[in-house]
Computed example of a mutant assay.
Amino acid sequence: MDSQTGTHDDNMKPATKKSLRGFAAMDPQRQREIASLGGRAAHQSGHAHEFTSEEARAAGKKRHARAQATGESPRA
């Protein structure tokens, strides 16, 4: 809308409102409960991986080296 005249600008599209469905529509507490169950199941089945401090350190070094080479922030 044009703030001066109160008319719609032809170049602007109306904002579409998406309705949340499924997991996104759930209460955040319920989402955490479901995610927690999935994490526990992964650990029980042996599919979850927990990094050792050495693995985490090596991964961090690789990430920082790659970020310095490309000039980006390591947190990106």
Score class of each variant (00 low, 15 high):
38 G>D: 04
63 R>C: 02
63 R>A: 13
45 S>V: 08
58 A>H: 01
29 Q>R: 08
15 A>Y: 06
44 Q>F: 04
22 G>A: 08
58 A>I: 02
36 S>K: 08
57 R>Q: 10
37 L>S: 12
43 H>S: 02
63 R>P: 00
42 A>Q: 03
31 Q>P: 02
3 S>D: 14
6 G>C: 05
56 A>P: 01
4 Q>S: 15
5 T>N: 12
56 A>F: 03
44 Q>P: 02
38 G>Y: 01
63 R>M: 10
49 H>W: 02
66 R>V: 05
69 A>S: 15
64 H>K: 14
6 G>A: 12
14 P>A: 15
6 G>W: 00
68 Q>R: 08
56 A>N: 01
70 T>D: 15
44 Q>A: 13
18 K>E: 15
31 Q>V: 02
43 H>W: 03
15 A>L: 14
52 T>N: 03
12 M>N: 14
13 K>Y: 08
62 K>I: 02
25 A>K: 09
20 L>S: 15
13 K>I: 05
24 A>R: 11
68 Q>E: 13
34 I>G: 04
63 R>T: 09
60 G>R: 08
76 A>V: 05
67 A>M: 11
42 A>K: 09
75 R>D: 12
61 K>R: 06
57 R>G: 09
40 R>D: 13
14 P>M: 13
15 A>T: 14
16 T>A: 15
67 A>E: 10
39 G>A: 06
73 S>N: 15
41 A>I: 09
29 Q>E: 11
48 A>Q: 01
67 A>D: 09
67 A>W: 01
69 A>M: 10
48 A>L: 01
31 Q>A: 06
16 T>E: 14
19 S>I: 05
2 D>F: 07
10 D>S: 15
